[in-house]
Nucleic acid binder design. Structure first.
Lengths: 201, 201
DNA sequence: GTAGCTTTGCTAACGCTGTTACAAAAAATA
DNA sequence: TATTTTTTGTAACAGCGTTAGCAAAGCTAC
């Protein structure tokens, strides 16, 4: 069956062609402006050909999503190499995660659904001030007098917000409501506790 | 000038009509399927009328974004009422944040750009296993023998991931690269430190 | 009350998008 | 060479954001 063999090989080649062109597009223009039609144009095939390889547009994005997680896992594993102290491993992985996110910006966006229209401007929204004030004031009040030098309130505000936003986002991946059998609640408590401890002592 | 007065009033009414219809749509169908044309249809006006009130589609979403932050700030302030202990305030705000996110799901999505096509399925991606294993194994190794009962590795894995994802997301709101003058790096270190402390002691 | 001007609103189009039914062309089989 | 299978392209459907140009209504002044 060498004929069907070649056919499979050729079909695979087109599949790779599609993925390459799509990825090129995601990297240069962002996933928002990636379209089936543009991919078809780039690989010099007609549009329906793409639908013989992928069920729909989302299936192509899903492919990148999975690859993103594979890459991230690799980065984390690599970061651990040569470090047998678990605390050092966790430290290394955290930095690896951070570096992955920013040096693979497009992957990270796809993996966690960042990059909405309003997202870019979210930082400039004046309404955020009230939010920041509410948190910052309590953090400053919490800081013991003898630690005012070593605790930066703005830094702690960022930590606080980041932790909460991460927690919420992760829990929203999948389900809109928070019926997760109390686990999320325990994580929340755990995170708050760590945060407060980090300031007072 | 009672005529132009009425005109302004009527124009404002249409504006409210637009926002109400748009929000109704976002709540019932999600922001992904909200469209100018459907709003025009709902309020029984033609499409260009909407463009006399809002510059474009994003401007309408931005409106909700801002309102979302106003609501969130209110929630946080309200949570602090009657609590003069700063640690209790922070605890209350964290829970208020959490509750806001899940009882105002659509606002939270808009505010932080959640809800990409691939987002719903992100939890089901098998490639995530490698990622989880890399982290969990180090956490288990870090846990002292006498604390194995009180430290749930899965819970800590969720905390770790949440913190990092939050940190990255917040820093990506605005800029793709991480040239933030070292502040983000300090927050990262701060968060890792708190996390490790929370496990070993 | 009518003429002219201003404001408002609608129709219809442009150029996109994802997706698919159907026909043509090419390739493999008989 | 004729037939069948596979592959590919054309063209359409239904939707989207956005805008140019025109008709209608409302207001002002005579």
């Amino acid at each position: 069956m060498s004929i069907t063999d070649r056919r499979l090989r050729q079909k695979e080649e087109v599949r790779v062609l599609i993925l390459d062109a799509a990825w090129e597009m995601v990297v240069t223009e962002g996933w928002q402006s990636f379209s089936i039609r543009k991919v078809a144009d780039a690989i010099e095939y007609s549009v329906p050909v793409i639908y013989t390889h992928f069920e729909n547009k989302d299936a192509i994005l899903l492919e990148f999503n999975r690859k993103g997680f594979r890459l991230l896992a690799e980065c984390l594993e690599e970061a651990k190499i040569g470090k047998d102290n678990p605390a050092a491993q966790i430290d290394a992985m955290a930095h690896a995660y951070w570096n992955f996110a920013f040096s693979n910006y497009q992957y990270y966006q796809l993996m966690f659904g960042l990059g909405m229209p309003t997202c870019e401007t979210a930082r400039k929204i004046p309404e955020m001030a009230g939010f920041k004030d509410a948190i910052s004031s309590s953090i400053e009040a919490l800081t013991p007098a003898d630690r005012k030098d070593s605790v930066d309130p703005f830094l702690k505000y960022q930590s606080f917000w980041s932790m909460l936003h991460g927690l919420v986002s992760i829990n929203m991946l999948g389900k809109p409501d928070n019926q997760h059998g109390g686990l999320a609640e325990m994580v929340l408590k755990d995170v708050i506790c760590s945060f407060i401890k980090g300031i007072v002592s």
